[in-house]
Design a protein around this nucleic acid. Structure first.
Lengths: 228, 228
DNA sequence: TGAAAGGGTTGATAAATATCAATTTTTAAA
DNA sequence: TTTAAAAATTGATATTTATCAACCCTTTCA
């Protein structure tokens, strides 16, 4: 429904397509070589600046990708959920991680060791192309998001964040996320975010219950986001 | 020299490596199939939302990549110069252009038609890997830039922009760029940019001559950028 | 040559946003 | 359950940034 109100594809992204329709070979290779990892909420999967050992498939849970500023303040630029691949960029660019990834909920991952992943894309042309396609699309989404940060107000960005978060959580309009993380997504202070949420509540666009956000009127949010 | 003062690699990017050491086959294929294009300053190479016909090699001149907001305001997220490839993202993701590209100076391009480029990366594994590597590195740079927009002040971003622009123009510290374009890079209003430049001049970090910026004391700019 | 247009600059002011401090609410731990 | 810690909220205020208007300077072109 929200797709008709808002051009989601240009402003959000999920890479699960990369893993769709894997060949039998690939699936059994992953099954054989994978290393299962379970982490609790708030634990960190990998840190910015460290050396990658493979890619991760997020099997259950939700994570945030963020980079850290000088004062230690996080900037969250992406949220991921079930079936997405994590950590492939720096494996491909042969660099250390350019960002950190941490759990928003309890999570389960499969670690695919570096050599296994690299040989997979070496031998599976189709998968390599999906990867390229995915990264290239991602790129367009990121340039859009950069423009939004540069040109839109806190109120507009907050409205947009709620629209995207509703889709991401996909739970009857119910969004469960700390104000700190939310403000790190919007790119503002916690207090400014709280005041803006208060305004949206007053305007009947959302409800606030036990610090969760429940969307009530997406149209009002789309209007407040100043897009279309 | 500036590399020792500032971690440039994390905050800027150039993709000319993709075209380095092409095979003889590739070079002669490009020579045979290329379509040469000359554009004057301010002309647009391609517009956001249009369908790509190929990739462009920028042979001479400088261009800006930008996306356009609702009010028509540009946000410039990347500048490119000689030997960089343009327009490959959307060819790989099979989408329309996610951004526009326009000339900052008179420019010369070689257009490599879509089929030619796609068959090149199909047959040249090495080039495909350089492309992947390049895009993945680019990605890290972009997430960093996004954080800078979200967390740093206009003064800090302006200082950073001058550091990057000095490297980009590579002309004895001399930067020739309109205030409008410069403000679209920093993500602020023209007036705020002008005032900040005025401050840096007062502080002895730059000189302003015929609306060009001449860097005088990079250390002061690095300090003002609030990194390191 | 003179007029007009565009880019750059400055000042005054309004609006947006961050910061600091205090308080309440919620969550986690003993 | 009680207590402590963390998170969320609110108010007051300071700072940052945008906007509007005026003006200057250069370039262009009729």
């Amino acid at each position: 429904m929200i797709n008709t109100l808002f051009p989601c594809k240009r402003y959000s992204f999920t890479n699960e397509a990369i893993l769709e329709d894997l060949s039998k070979n690939a699936i059994s290779l992953i099954e054989e070589k994978k290393i299962s990892i379970k982490l609790k909420k708030k634990q960190v999967l990998f840190y910015e600046g460290t050396i990658p050992t493979g890619v991760y498939i997020l099997r259950a849970g939700k994570v945030k990708k963020y980079s850290t500023g000088l004062n230690g303040k996080e900037h969250i630029f992406y949220l991921a959920k079930e079936n997405e691949i994590l950590g492939y960029h720096c494996l491909l660019s042969k660099e250390t991680y350019a960002h950190s990834t941490a759990c928003l909920t309890d999570c389960e991952f499969d670690l695919i060791p570096k050599e296994v992943f690299l040989s997979m894309i070496e031998n599976d042309h189709e998968m390599l192309h999906r990867l390229l396609k995915s990264i290239s699309h991602e790129f367009g989404v990121f340039t859009n998001n950069t423009r939004i940060l540069a040109q839109h107000s806190v109120r507009e960005r907050t409205a947009l964040s709620i629209i995207k978060l509703e889709r991401f959580f996909d739970n009857n309009g119910c969004i469960k996320l700390s104000r700190k993380d939310h403000s790190s997504i919007v790119g503002t202070s916690i207090e400014s975010l709280v005041r803006t949420l208060h305004d949206f509540k007053e305007e009947g666009a959302i409800e606030l219950r036990e610090s969760m956000i429940i969307t009530k009127d997406i149209k009002k949010l789309v209007k407040a986001s100043n897009f279309v």
